[in-house]
């Protein structure tokens, strides 16, 4: 019996090409396994082998989606794999989105069995878990062994077209498709145990997550804008020219706080956008188009708005996880409240 053929997709970091500075690495096809592929190969034993690895920089992939996908897919199909493995990406957002995109494209366009793996809060998880199997991993590469232990057997099953069981049994993130399984304990016992955990503030896992209708209560209207203190916040990625804090072009892991007191107007010399999800040309020419500082300054002079909070807060909305977005805002909102800000103009793209 010949071994099953596996192609592995990884990023520049796991291929040891380099870190963030090499994130624009263009797709490269290499023979055999690279980096974490060694662990997968060992796990496959005689059943399968990684015949080739596709390496691609996360920035290059995310900023050249169509071209990169086509190149990567061509490389993959040239190797005639029985199954494709992407990642695991753990909590690296752009890598997770790349892995999910590649996996979905392999499934849709190449019609091949495929899986990927990442931490449940990786933005790529929510985006792709209903389209392809996304194995749940820890949030850092320290979880590589556990990830391989789940991904390798699932890859073999997919390659052999065997029945895939419930998310709990196979280790993939719940994908909205419910599958029955037999637990070790009866439901009543599971319920009472869950109650004891809940009462004690311990972590428990619900067997059925309620559909999430995340609603935000609208704030009260500002009665008199001429007296109001306003702050500017954006997820459009506007940053000082040169992006000094290296806010990512997608799946941002941080936000920036920058001083506006020296500016009446943002220009090509002073500001730019870091956001990788829209055509940056016009925002780079004049960042006021995304962060309307010039208009605010005019309206303050005209007495229509009271005053402006001295800093603006910015991040890249593109693929940034809900959890991160909430965390950023929870932090800087405290500064807004402390400064007596009445309302925020929040621009998104």
């Amino acid at each position: 019996m010949s071994k099953l053929r596996v192609v592995h997709y990884i990023n520049q970091f796991f291929a040891n090409v380099g870190g963030e500075e090499m994130a624009d690495y263009q797709p490269e096809l290499r023979e055999g396994f690279v980096g974490p592929g060694m662990a997968f190969n060992a796990a496959f034993k005689d059943e399968a082998e990684i015949v080739a690895t596709v390496v691609c920089g996360d920035s290059y992939f995310n900023e050249n989606l169509e071209v990169a996908k086509k190149t990567v897919l061509d490389m993959i199909s040239s190797q005639k794999p029985d199954v494709v493995i992407c990642g695991p990406a753990f909590n690296a957002g752009r890598y997770g989105v790349a892995c999910g995109s590649v996996a979905a494209a392999v499934k849709e366009e190449l019609n091949l069995p495929v899986l990927t793996g990442m931490y449940k809060e990786n933005p790529g998880a929510d985006m792709f878990k209903t389209q392809v199997y996304v194995v749940g991993t820890k949030d850092s590469a320290a979880g590589m062994r556990g990830a391989v232990a789940l991904m390798a057997p699932l890859a073999l099953k997919l390659a052999r077209n065997e029945e895939i069981l419930s998310s709990k049994e196979e280790g993939y993130l719940p994908n909205g498709v419910r599958k029955n399984l037999f637990e070790d304990k009866i439901g009543a016992e599971r319920a009472v145990e869950m109650m004891v955990k809940k009462l004690n503030g311990k972590e428990y896992v619900t067997e059925f997550p309620m559909p999430n209708f995340d609603r935000v209560e609208p704030g009260k209207a500002v009665k008199d804008m001429s007296k109001a203190r306003i702050a500017l916040v954006t997820s459009g990625g506007i940053v000082p020219k040169g992006n000094p804090d290296r806010i990512e072009s997608s799946s941002a892991s941080k936000y920036g706080q920058y001083d506006l007191t020296a500016f009446d107007d943002l220009t090509e010399e002073t500001h730019e956008t870091a956001h990788g999800g829209y055509d940056p040309v016009y925002a780079n020419q004049d960042s006021d188009r995304v962060l309307p500082l010039d208009v605010i300054r005019d309206m303050i002079k005209e007495g229509k708005i009271g005053s402006l909070h001295p800093y603006f807060y910015t991040t890249t909305g593109n693929g940034t996880s809900v959890a991160n977005s909430k965390a950023f805002a929870a932090e800087f909102a405290q500064k807004l409240v402390a400064d007596g800000v009445d309302a925020v103009i929040l621009t998104s793209t």
């Binding site: 419930s166 998310s167 709990k168 049994e169 719940p174 419910r178 599958k179 029955n180 399984l181 037999f182 637990e183 070790d184 304990k185 009866i186 439901g187 009543a188 016992e189 599971r190 319920a191 067997e207 059925f208």
Partner: peptide, 12 residues
């Protein structure tokens, strides 16, 4: 699929 939790059957 008893809802008193009589059985071991579940779903994910």
């Amino acid at each position: 699929t008893n809802e008193m939790g009589f059985n071991k059957l579940s779903a994910r």
